[in-house]
């Protein structure tokens, strides 16, 4: 009940991070590093696909808060997609839907960037 993986796939100028498993204080450095790498490479259009994520605590949510302003200042964004109801409820309890784009599938997430561009 504690493994976590993150895989990256670049589609044109959009990078998708596929996260799976359990995102908590123990595993969050791996996710933080993946986002930091994108920022270092000036990849600011980011989709995080939650389809295979089983669990998230506030330690995981903190990563989004830590990076989002810097990424938006660079005309980018982090769009979140494919969350289970259980994971969405954690974001919802903390008011994230008002500040982050959370959509149901990856295609819709891609469209958020295409329509904004």
């Amino acid at each position: 009940m504690s493994g976590f993986t993150v895989e990256r796939s670049d589609k044109d100028d959009i990078s998708v991070l596929y996260i799976s498993g359990f995102l908590d204080l123990h595993t969050v450095p791996k996710f933080e590093e993946a986002v930091q790498n994108l920022v270092n490479e000036t990849h600011f259009k980011i989709i995080v696909n939650f389809q295979k994520l089983d669990y998230i605590s506030s330690a995981g949510l903190g990563v989004f808060m830590g990076f989002i302003e810097e990424i938006r200042e660079q005309e980018g964004d982090i769009v979140l997609c494919c969350m289970s109801d259980r994971v969405y409820k954690v974001f919802d309890l903390l008011g994230f839907p008002a500040l982050f784009k959370i959509v149901s599938n990856e295609e819709e997430a891609m469209q958020k960037f295409n329509s904004a561009g």
């Binding site: 605590s57 506030s58 949510l61 903190g62 990563v63 808060m65 830590g66 990076f67 989002i68 302003e69 810097e70 954690v90 309890l93 903390l94 008011g95 994230f96 008002a98 500040l99």
Partner: peptide
Amino acid sequence: KPDLQKYIHEAKKGGLGIHLMRSL
């Protein structure tokens, strides 16, 4: 109660846990 807008502006990564505990 966390002010997300302010936290984002300060790139603050913590402060949400106690609010979650109280909500849950």
